[in-house]
Computed example of a mutant assay.
Amino acid sequence: MMSHGYGMGIGWFLIIVAFALPALLLAAGLLVAQFQRGARSEPGATTPPEREAERVLAERLARGEIGAEEFEQRVRALRAAWR
């Protein structure tokens, strides 16, 4: 790859591109993923407390900590309290 004593010629350029291109592609992929994640949940947006409470109850139901009847009773109680 020597070109008459003038160093590597285009070889240095190819080495730099070989290292820089994957790093740039990785950075671009991370930026796109971060942008998509941010688009799904707006910064500063919070879940209303009543939705959060219902979500916790749904998780407890899914884990089997409470039964379906108890879940329905608690959801009704929550909705009545928030009115």
Results as ranks from 00 to 15, higher is better:
residue 1 M to G: 15
residue 2 M to T: 00
residue 2 M to G: 05
residue 4 H to I: 04
residue 4 H to M: 06
residue 4 H to G: 01
residue 4 H to P: 04
residue 6 Y to H: 15
residue 6 Y to P: 03
residue 7 G to L: 03
residue 9 G to D: 03
residue 9 G to P: 05
residue 10 I to T: 01
residue 10 I to V: 04
residue 11 G to S: 05
residue 12 W to S: 11
residue 12 W to D: 06
residue 14 L to S: 04
residue 14 L to C: 07
residue 15 I to R: 02
residue 16 I to N: 04
residue 17 V to K: 05
residue 17 V to D: 05
residue 18 A to R: 03
residue 18 A to K: 10
residue 19 F to P: 02
residue 19 F to K: 06
residue 19 F to H: 07
residue 21 L to M: 07
residue 21 L to T: 10
residue 23 A to Q: 07
residue 25 L to H: 08
residue 25 L to C: 08
residue 27 A to I: 07
residue 30 L to P: 01
residue 30 L to S: 06
residue 31 L to C: 10
residue 31 L to T: 06
residue 31 L to M: 14
residue 31 L to N: 00
residue 34 Q to K: 06
residue 36 Q to A: 12
residue 36 Q to C: 08
residue 38 G to F: 11
residue 39 A to N: 08
residue 41 S to I: 05
residue 42 E to N: 05
residue 43 P to S: 03
residue 44 G to Y: 11
residue 44 G to A: 09
residue 46 T to P: 06
residue 46 T to I: 12
residue 46 T to H: 15
residue 48 P to Q: 01
residue 49 P to D: 09
residue 50 E to F: 08
residue 51 R to E: 12
residue 51 R to S: 10
residue 52 E to N: 09
residue 52 E to P: 13
residue 53 A to P: 15
residue 53 A to I: 10
residue 53 A to M: 14
residue 54 E to S: 12
residue 54 E to Q: 13
residue 55 R to T: 10
residue 55 R to S: 09
residue 56 V to S: 13
residue 57 L to Y: 11
residue 57 L to V: 09
residue 57 L to N: 08
residue 58 A to S: 13
residue 58 A to W: 11
residue 58 A to T: 12
residue 59 E to K: 08
residue 60 R to P: 06
residue 60 R to T: 07
residue 60 R to K: 14
residue 61 L to P: 06
residue 63 R to Q: 13
residue 63 R to D: 13
residue 64 G to P: 11
residue 64 G to Y: 11
residue 65 E to W: 15
residue 66 I to C: 11
residue 67 G to Y: 04
residue 68 A to T: 06
residue 70 E to P: 02
residue 71 F to L: 02
residue 71 F to R: 03
residue 72 E to T: 11
residue 74 R to M: 08
residue 74 R to G: 02
residue 74 R to D: 00
residue 76 R to D: 07
residue 76 R to A: 12
residue 76 R to F: 12
residue 76 R to Y: 04
residue 78 L to I: 11
residue 80 A to L: 05
residue 81 A to T: 03
residue 82 W to N: 09
residue 82 W to I: 04
residue 82 W to S: 06
